[in-house]
Nucleic acid binder design. Structure first.
Length: 365
DNA sequence: AATCCGGGGTG
DNA sequence: CACCCAGGATT
């Protein structure tokens, strides 16, 4: 037995029902055989790892892969990303959601190039000072790019630890959070942290899944308290969710000489920097009067008709959109501010946000 | 501690 | 459709 093994045993957390070393060894052995090959796993380049981790926040691997490739095609290096206009970064992010991630990505790239010689810091607490990088993402970058012994606590790890330790609390509570981070820290080995980190993410994605986990294939089944107590299907505890309100909106296809008016949303807040049809929120049903009111004094309307409806759900409200085509008496439309007259045939390529993208099939009707 | 941020998948 | 999933910033 080596010195480090003796020391590990000596530091064993009294709350841990097993040796962290056994846990990580079983996990690493499984990973060698069953680990996934992903586009961002052939590298230790912190730029590539950082990009993948930001894209993977709140997002599945399947949804990310295409965006990751397109993004790197356009921004293959940190310096190129830093010198690009934010609008181009948003355009490549369109459809991926949580657009603050794209703004923070751009801000971090500029911060690193301007103040750190284009290099990522290696320490977790320094990584956490960068926009869009919290404790878990900082840990992932430190572990994957720099092979540091830093824990992560993403959704996969959170679910695994809730089960392995049979945590009898809501997993997002402050109290649970403290315990989970402590456990994550205790289980993260001093060596081979790069592989360990990818292994535990894969365990969550492939074996310890939210529904129907494959416990019979799990490398740490013998250590899992939820398994031995037959609680796997009850854990993690489900946080009660509140019901969300519904908002109504009118969106307008303002048509003038085969072009329509579109506008870019302000850079911050909901769907920041994405394009949309002009429109307004409504509380009651007076569509035609409201539309004429909305367009009053701007241009002459020749015809208004309803094209259809779309529903879209955000994290905290439902949106119902009524889509109207408004044909204008042809005139020389001048776009102002964030507006633009776009040929109708170009709408498909436009980085519209999800709710308005659902309206496009209605145009042909 | 609670709320704000999307979009995809399942049944 | 209803419901599930899931990091970081902000207030």
């Amino acid at each position: 037995m080596t010195d480090s093994e003796i020391k590990d045993e000596g530091n064993l957390e009294p709350t841990l029902p097993f040796s962290p070393r056994v846990f990580s060894e079983h996990l690493l052995e499984w990973y060698k055989l069953a680990g996934r090959e992903l586009p961002w796993r052939q590298t230790r380049d912190p730029y590539l790892i950082w990009l993948s981790e930001i894209m993977l926040q709140q997002t599945t691997v399947a949804a990310v892969i295409g965006y990751y490739r397109r993004f790197l095609m356009r921004f293959p290096r940190l310096t190129i990303l830093a010198s690009a206009p934010l609008e181009e970064v948003i355009d490549l992010w369109a459809g991926l959601g949580y657009y603050a991630r794209a703004r923070n990505l751009h801000a971090t790239a500029q911060e690193l190039v301007e103040n750190r010689g284009g290099e990522f810091p290696q320490a977790v607490d320094e990584l956490m000072m960068l926009p869009g990088i919290g404790r878990s993402t900082a840990g992932a970058i430190a572990a994957l790019a720099f092979d540091q012994s830093a824990p992560i606590l993403d959704g996969n790890v959170r679910r695994i630890l809730c089960r392995v330790f049979a945590l009898d609390e809501l997993p997002r509570s402050g109290s649970a959070d403290k315990k989970l981070w402590k456990w994550a820290e205790s289980l993260t080995p001093q060596h081979r942290t790069h592989d360990y980190t990818q292994a535990i993410m894969d365990l969550g994605a492939l074996i310890c899944t939210p529904k129907s986990p494959r416990c019979d294939q799990c490398p740490v089944e013998s250590l899992c308290l939820a398994r031995s107590r037959n609680l796997v299907d009850m854990l993690p505890m489900k946080t009660p969710r509140k019901k969300i309100p519904t908002r109504h909106q009118l969106a307008l296809l303002l048509v003038n000489r085969e072009r329509c008016l579109i506008q870019r949303r302000p850079p911050n807040g909901l769907l920041g920097g994405l394009w949309e049809f002009p429109g307004f929120e409504t509380t009651q049903e007076e569509p035609f009067a409201a539309i004429r009111q909305h367009c009053a004094g701007r241009r002459s309307i020749s015809e208004v008709r309803l094209l259809g409806h779309a529903r879209h759900t955000y994290s905290h409200f439902h949106l119902e959109v009524d889509f109207y085509r408004v044909d204008l008496v042809p005139y020389d439309g001048i776009a102002e501010g964030t507006e633009q007259w776009l040929p109708l045939v170009d709408l498909e390529q436009l980085p519209l946000h999800g709710a308005h993208k659902k309206l496009l099939p209605l145009i042909g009707a």
